[in-house]
Computed example of a mutant assay.
Amino acid sequence: MTPLAPSLSALVRLRAERPEAVAEAAARRTRRRLIRHPGDRLMIIAADHPARGALAVGDRSLAMANRFELLERLCLALSRPGVDGVLASADVLDDLLLLGALEDKVVMGSMNRGGLAGAAFELDDRFTGYRPDDLVRQGFDAGKLLLRIDHDDPGSLDTLHTAARTIDAMAAHRLPVFRRTVPLPPRRRFRLRNDLGAAAVATSIAIASGLAGTSAYTWLKVPVTDDPDAMGRAMEASTLPAVLLGGEVGDDQDAAYGKWRDALRLPTVRGLVVGRSLLYPVDGDVTLAVDTAVSLLRPGRDGP
């Protein structure tokens, strides 16, 4: 990775002495369309984990706690050919704005970060991040919300209601909203885990697709199942465009690439939104990890 120490030192001074520089950088940023050409697929780097207290990568509990290292890895990933943009919370996007790393990129703001990892209120995914008006003011290109559904938790209804009204507000601004839907198994105990069975994923997709007064600006952000056939059946639950999320970092990255490649063949899948497995790959080679992920999207450049 290319050291960013001089730029990061200037960033820290700028934040303290000229806070208005964030708005100035946002105002002069070169923007781009979400989808530039028919058949294009998106490669988005995700970095909204720290705002929810999710700092672990694999067996490294505080891997994402070093903000300077995270920014270096993000700037490297965003500089690679074929990377379309980034998903992050306001603090990270403000840093990237000041570093000049968001020019001609899709900028996606993370909206509900209230369900802190490991907390008793983790499923209470309140909208403590970007509001639709914030994204408009900053000139950003999309928003992302997390919708975790637990049939044993009455609080999930509050999350559903708030998510629906937020989607309405985004549609009023004609801003795309990427909706990550996470099915949870019944009778969970102590630690949240996702249910990636075909029935659970399909049900969560159907519920998420039907939220709000319009789905015109809605994208889905979905996990990849281990079974390609199950993934295909689950994705038949909606016609909305979808992107795949990367999931946890594992030792067998080649297997993850294989699952992404299979899922990208499905007609509604239009890209990848991946974070830790590309920013903190097991072998440490961010460039190789990002370039390999981008290469999986190339068949989609010719159209559906």
Rank of each mutant, 00 (worst) to 15 (best):
G58N: 00
L78P: 05
M64T: 00
G129P: 12
T159V: 15
S295H: 08
R179A: 13
V57C: 02
L74P: 01
A88I: 04
G271N: 01
L11D: 09
R15N: 10
G39E: 13
A88K: 00
N194R: 12
L192I: 10
P176H: 04
N112T: 06
L146E: 02
H173F: 15
P183M: 09
A46Q: 02
T287R: 09
L135K: 00
G39W: 10
M111I: 14
D251R: 09
L272Q: 03
L288H: 15
R191V: 11
V282D: 09
L123S: 00
A101E: 15
P183R: 06
G129Q: 13
A46T: 04
R113Q: 15
R174M: 01
T30P: 04
V274N: 04
D226N: 13
R180G: 06
G100I: 05
P19W: 06
A212H: 02
L98M: 09
G115L: 10
A164R: 07
D168S: 07
A255M: 04
D252G: 07
A198S: 15
P185Y: 00
A142L: 13
L4I: 13
V182S: 13
D59W: 07
V273W: 07
V22L: 08
L70I: 05
A230N: 06
D141I: 12
A206N: 07
L184D: 03
D195L: 11
G284E: 08
S238K: 09
M108T: 02
L296G: 08
E236F: 01
A212I: 03
A289Q: 08
T159M: 12
W219H: 08
L96Q: 05
A90Q: 11
P223Y: 10
D150N: 12
Y130R: 04
A206Y: 05
R233Q: 15
D254M: 11
L11C: 11
L147G: 00
R179E: 13
